[in-house]
Amino acid sequence: MTTRPRLNLGSHLIPGLVALALFVVLALVFLTASFPAPQGFDGAPITPSIGYAMFDLAGGQIPSESFLIAFEIIDLVLIAALAAAVMLARREGDGKLVGIEEIRTDGGHSRDSTTDADADPDSGSDAEVTNDTDPNTATGSDTATPTGEEAN
């Protein structure tokens, strides 16, 4: 799925059909299922009951399975995510980034954007914005993605 060399409208066709086919299947399954009338909550207070259910306390007016252990596990998950994200994102030693000499905040597409802006401020910057945020729909101008950008 990620190995296709180029993107254009033609190559969106197959993924589009896949997604559409899945939706048709799901819709058929959903619409042919017959549900009884919903039981609802009968006006019982929902938010406090969520609190009781999450901490596994007696007192909630709406039945629920207990989520105390899930709450404890998710504490560990967040610690793990924190440690992982900090380890990955931290700059090395002397404040330089690994493998790249300067920081660019534009997704790496517009090293030459200044020259564009000089030549034609409006359309140039617009085209850059389209390219940066959404390279896929920039119809026909995918070649604008610079190939010599790779650091190292």
Partner: peptide, 22 residues
């Protein structure tokens, strides 16, 4: 949490390959 780790990986991807193109 998943996004936090994902952004971290994308960050090192960008530092190594100069792009966020998968």
């Amino acid at each position: 949490a998943e996004v936090a780790v994902g952004i971290g990986i994308i960050l090192v991807l960008y530092r190594n390959f100069g792009d966020v193109d998968v």
